[in-house]
Design a protein around this nucleic acid. Structure first.
Lengths: 246, 246
DNA sequence: CTTACTTAGTGTCAAATTAACACTAACTTG
DNA sequence: CAAGTTAGTGTTAATTTGACACTAAGTAAG
């Protein structure tokens, strides 16, 4: 292959989003049921994603994808990696939109991974007619996904862990008002280890961005917990690893 | 613009490398003198980079770019971000290789940023006929670069800081055998603050991957320091923020 | 050869942070 | 009203951190 040939095909560029959610049953990721499954036994999933448009940058593409899927704006969004193995194309080829819009059926697809955080209370796929194909899947039972999306998901998960260690982003996954139990549960789930309750509370309540409310949980079959809020404006963005238990 | 039109042009995809070096005079970055400067007064620089080839993945493209430039293999390399503002193209357009090989003069350029670490002793631009256009530039006197390369450089710098906080990669910037003074100097330079000498030594020598040699510095006009080596195999890769002075 | 200069190398203590640990309180359900 | 469940709370020992100043070993300049 001549040098000119090896350069002559411009790749497709897409954005794929790892959308995390968290509720009573744990950490979830938003998957899309595919139309043209490789195997006909059982469902076939992929991460939400799309080609970028000519007039948008990468962040805008990610926002558009999320908006089209969830109708939500202003979601937490963070780019974490680009994936460009030449063999990605062989599988990405069979995407409906790819087949229909691309000029060059041989061109590969380079994709940029973003992760996003949603309060599941704000997005229920079944309730949105335009999002019928979307589904919250527990992170620990994610099946084999299309393309290299398992790899992208894994990288997104690592990126989330790292982020949660250094910035108070966990609040994006919780309801506006939450209990310290829920917050601890979230950290334990994402980090993958248990945290001493009293040590956790001492540390987290010492941070200025956590605001205690004069309000309690309702309708639970045990002592109701006090509710807290995230106080964005009190967070000063100085870098210092936030959580280093263990 | 119809949806089809806005998707019809595939972007160019390139890789740009922020190559760091460190010596007595501080932290350096490797810049390339451009052939077609925008302004004719003074030199004009850019980061080393190139379009990816059809048969290589992103890491391979970065390795190729570095190999072609420095003739060095096995350099430390880490992807840190993708940049895809649509307006990048307007300036990237005038790159010689872009003009010559691309199909579509309107297509934008999406680029993936990598940073790399070199021991400057291993690469002296002036000595390599094929690298005459390369130049080590002190990080704090980097001029305005072509395209959005100042932004990419800045992001690369942040990525290096973060990496050095969590993994022992600084050794990639020092000679095989180095003194604790050099090591501390490197950390202070990259992190941007001073570190107490005794506290630094206590912490760093407590780490298993640092191996004291029975050898001393030679030819310095002061008490010669003991030399140390990085012991790759002793490093266990467990995540725990390595340096959190301040 | 003596002095000046430069960087290497070393220890202690107080303060802050972390880890480990167990019981009572408040609510719902049966 | 008993059982079940999660909330909420404090102390202590161990570890880590931050602050701090002097002597040692070499070269260079006079």
């Amino acid at each position: 292959m001549s040098e000119n040939q090896s350069l002559s095909l411009n790749p497709n560029v897409s954005v794929d989003c790892v959308v995390f959610g968290f509720d009573l049953s744990g950490l979830k990721v938003l998957l899309i049921e595919r139309e043209n499954p490789d195997n006909t036994d059982g469902k076939n999933y992929q991460l939400p994603g799309d080609l970028i448009r000519n007039d948008e940058n990468l962040d805008e593409a990610a926002k558009r994808i999320l908006k089209e899927l969830t109708a939500l704006d202003n979601l937490f969004l963070s780019q974490f990696a680009a994936f460009g193995d030449p063999s990605r194309v062989k599988r990405e080829n069979d995407l409906e939109w790819l087949r229909s819009v691309r000029k060059d059926p041989e061109a590969r697809v380079v994709t940029v991974g973003y992760f996003s955080l949603i309060k599941p209370e704000n997005f229920k796929p079944a309730a949105n007619s335009f999002a019928r194909k979307a589904e919250w899947m527990s992170i620990d039972i994610v099946p084999e996904l299309a393309f290299d999306h398992n790899l992208i998901l894994q990288n997104g998960m690592e990126a989330l862990k790292l982020k949660m260690r250094t910035e108070p982003v966990g609040f994006e996954l919780l309801p506006e008002k939450f209990t310290l139990g829920q917050l601890q549960n979230l950290y334990e789930t994402v980090m993958g280890f248990e945290i001493d309750k009293r040590n956790f509370r001492r540390k987290i309540t010492g941070m200025d961005f956590l605001k205690a409310l004069d309000e309690k949980q309702q309708g639970v079959a045990h002592k109701p917990a006090r509710l807290y809020e995230f106080n964005q404006s009190a967070y000063n963005h100085s870098f210092s690893p936030m959580f280093d238990f263990q």
